[in-house]
Amino acid sequence: MVKHTGRPGYLQIADDLREQIRGGALALGAPLPSTAQLAERYGASLSVVKMAVGILRNEGLVVGQQGKGVFVREDAAPAPPPADEITEIRLTLRELSERLAKVEAELSERR
């Protein structure tokens, strides 16, 4: 479950999945649960889950296979340090842009 700590939910999810990979709960070559399953598990939106999985892709821990899912890489090297500040800022900006678009859409419907 994503906690309201001030830390973005996608980073919390990425941290948890990373720990599951490092700890062996998600074995090398194993599929990740679907985006919908992860969203339900963490109480987060699909877009937040997708951003979290994107971080793990950038770190080289998981790989997507079109039409099959996302899998823990067989040759997954230990994850590098958490995403650098610029990547984190970009992801946060994308999330804020999506939220702003929803708010603007709701406001325009009220007019």
Rank of each mutant, 00 (worst) to 15 (best):
R111M: 08
I13L: 08
Q65M: 12
H4C: 07
Q65G: 09
N58Q: 14
N58I: 11
L17Y: 00
G43E: 07
L17I: 10
G29A: 15
L38I: 04
V63D: 13
L61V: 05
V70I: 07
V103N: 10
K68H: 12
Q12K: 01
P33A: 10
E106D: 11
E104T: 07
S34A: 14
M1K: 08
L32P: 00
L17N: 02
K50V: 14
L96N: 03
A79I: 06
A30N: 06
A101C: 11
A52I: 05
D16I: 09
R99D: 06
R110Q: 14
N58V: 14
A14Q: 02
I21N: 01
E106V: 10
A30M: 09
E74L: 15
R7F: 00
A30T: 07
S45Y: 04
V72M: 04
L17V: 02
G54P: 00
R111W: 07
A52E: 06
A14N: 03
H4R: 07
D75L: 10
E85W: 05
Q65S: 10
G9E: 07
Y10R: 15
V48P: 00
I55G: 11
T35E: 15
T87H: 09
A77P: 02
K102N: 09
K68I: 12
M51V: 10
G29L: 11
P81E: 10
R7I: 00
S45C: 01
T5H: 02
V103H: 08
G6E: 07
V70N: 02
A52W: 02
V48D: 01
A79C: 06
G69S: 11
L56C: 03
T92W: 04
E109W: 02
G69H: 10
I86M: 13
Q66P: 05
S97E: 13
R7D: 00
S97W: 07
G23L: 09
E95Q: 12
M51K: 05
R73E: 11
D84L: 14
L32T: 04
P78I: 10
D84P: 09
F71M: 11
I89L: 14
I55C: 12
F71H: 10
V103W: 07
G43I: 03
V49I: 15
G64M: 14
Q37K: 14
Q66H: 09
Y42E: 05
L11V: 00
P82S: 12
L26G: 01
V72A: 04
Q65N: 11
A30C: 05
R111V: 09
A79V: 05
R73F: 06
L26W: 00
Q66S: 12
P8G: 02
R94C: 05
Q66T: 08
N58K: 15
I55R: 13
G24F: 01
R7L: 01
R90C: 08
I13C: 08
P31W: 01
M51L: 11
T35F: 11
I55H: 13
Q37M: 13
G67A: 12
L26E: 01
